[in-house]
Design a protein around this nucleic acid. Structure first.
Lengths: 245, 245
DNA sequence: CGTAAAATTGAGCTGTCTCAATCAATGTGG
DNA sequence: CCACATTGATTGAGACAGCTCAATTTTACG
C-alpha cells in the first residue's frame, strides 16, 4: 500500500504527460491553470474514475464511450491467448492515453488492467472527433501519439524477436525509468516499481522463474536494487551496456 | 525472374490498396480514372521509381522528401542490431504506405528493403500535410492507416512473445494470404511468395535452419506447397488450426 | 497473526539454436 | 548455351537459453 499511496499522491503530475500537454485539453487538471485557461479548451473531460490494483479496467470487448487518459498509476494492455498465455503490449503511465486507437474504435480489442490503482478520465469520443476537425493541432497531437505507440511496439517486437532475456529486462527498466523521468515521476535514480515479476515476464515473453533469475543476477552484480515496490538503478552504465544500445 | 515478372505486371492493382483507395489521392494510377477525376485531388504523386530486388530502398538515416506508397512488389521494414541480428517489422505490400510515420518524420529510422523489385511513388510531405488540414477525411484516412500498422505490430509482438515457431509460420502465411487477397493479388489459394527463408526467419524471430524444418513439416503434412516463388495453401483448415486463432 | 500472493531456489527437460556440410537453384560471363 | 560462381535450401548432430515442475521462503494485507 505504501507505494500505491505515493502514486495516489501524484494525480496532478499525471496531467503533464505527452498525451495531453500543450493541448489545452487538460481541463481536469485543476491546478494546471496554464493549460486549462485556454479559451478553446473542449469541455470533455469526464469525472475521474479509479480502478483498483490488479483489476481489469476494460475488457477486450467492452464498449467504451471515450478516450481514457491515465491521471495516476500504471496500466497494462494485455492480449490473452488460448491456453492461458498472456502478452503485455504496453504499460500506459500517467499522462498517457491508454490507446490512441480509441479515437476511432469504441472497443479496445485488448484487456486493459490496473497494475496499481489507476485514476483515469475519459474524453468523449464524439466531442474529440468534432474538435479534431476544427483544430488540426489536436488531430496532429493524437496522430503523433499513435506514432509513438507504434514505435514502442516496434521496439517491443525487436526485443521479443531478437534480444536475449537479459537485454530485454535491462531495456524494460531503462525504458520505464526514462518515461517516468520525462513525467517527473522519479527521485534521482529510483522509481516506484509496482510490477510483479509475473507481469515483467508477460511483458517480455519470458517465464516468471527465469525473469526472477535475471533480476537476481542484476541484483548480485550491483546493477540495481529492488526494495518494497521501489527500484533503484545503482549502475546505469552497466545497465545500458546490458541493454545493448 | 519469372515470378518477378508477375509482380511487375500488376502495377495498376497496387493503387487499389487501402492506403490510397477512396482518397482521391491516386492520380498516379493512370487507369483509375474514377479516383483521378476528383477535382480536389492533390497533384503530389511523384514519378514512379523502382528499387531492384534484395536492395535497400531507404536507409534508416536517409532524408526522405515524401510519403512513399508501394505500387508493385513487396518491401520489408527491417531493424538492424549490433551483432548482425535483424528483425523484420513489416512487409509493405502493393497499395500500402511504407510507414505512416513519414507523415511527420523526414527520416524513416528503419532500413527499408526490396524483397522483389519494388515500384513505388512518393507524395510530397508538405503538400500532404497542407491538404490534411483542408480535407479532414485525408487526415482520418492516414490516422487509420497508422492504427492498422500499430495493430499489426501488436500481433507481431504477441507472436514473438508467446507463440511457438509453428504458430508463427502458420500465422505469417495466413496473414500474407489474406492481405494479398484483399488486394486481389492471389489466384485461388496460391500466391506469389517471393520471401527467402532467411527473411521469414528474420520476420518471426527464428533461425533460417529452424524455419526450414517447420516449413518441411508443413509440406510433409500436406498443408502447403511451395513451387518456384509460389505458395499454395492445400489445407487451409489445418493451417488455421496450427495458427491457433 | 493468519492467509493468500509473490518471490526464490533447485533440478531436469525441450524448443530452438549453432555449427557444419551438402545439395539445388539462380545468375553471370564467355 | 554451357561452366562457373554465388546465393539459398536442406539435413544432421550436438549444445544451451530459457522452460516446466515442484518445493520453500518471504511479503502483503485483512
Amino acid at each position: 500500500m505504501a507505494s500505491d499511496v505515493k502514486l495516489h499522491d501524484a494525480p496532478k503530475m499525471g496531467c503533464m504527460g505527452c498525451a495531453v500537454r500543450g493541448l489545452g485539453f487538460c481541463r481536469f487538471s485543476l491546478d494546471q491553470g496554464l493549460e486549462a485557461a485556454r479559451a478553446d479548451t473542449p469541455q470533455v473531460a469526464q469525472v475521474e474514475r479509479v480502478a483498483p490494483a490488479r483489476r481489469p479496467i476494460f475488457r477486450a470487448s467492452d464498449r467504451i464511450d471515450g478516450l481514457p487518459v491515465i491521471c495516476a498509476g500504471w496500466g497494462a494492455v494485455v492480449a490473452y491467448l488460448p491456453n492461458g498465455r498472456r502478452q503485455i503490449l504496453s504499460f500506459p503511465l500517467p499522462g498517457e492515453f491508454i490507446s490512441s486507437s480509441l479515437v476511432f474504435a469504441d472497443v479496445p480489442f485488448r484487456d486493459v488492467e490496473a497494475v496499481t490503482p489507476v485514476h483515469y478520465r475519459s474524453f468523449d469520443r464524439a466531442t474529440v472527433r468534432q474538435h479534431m476537425t476544427i483544430r488540426p493541432g489536436l488531430f496532429e497531437r493524437l496522430f503523433k501519439d499513435c506514432i509513438t505507440e507504434k514505435e514502442r511496439l516496434e521496439e517491443l517486437a525487436i526485443d521479443l524477436g531478437r534480444r536475449s532475456a537479459e537485454e530485454r529486462v535491462a531495456r524494460l527498466i531503462l525504458d520505464l525509468t526514462e518515461r517516468l523521468a520525462k513525467h517527473d515521476l522519479q527521485r534521482g535514480s529510483t522509481i516506484d516499481f509496482p510490477l510483479r515479476q509475473t507481469q515483467i515476464a508477460d511483458a517480455l515473453g519470458l517465464t516468471p522463474v527465469y525473469t526472477n533469475q535475471v533480476l537476481r543476477k542484476f541484483r548480485n552484480s550491483g546493477i540495481l536494487k529492488i526494495v518494497g515496490r521501489t527500484l533503484t538503478v545503482l549502475d546505469p552504465l552497466k545497465l545500458s551496456l546490458l541493454a545493448n544500445r
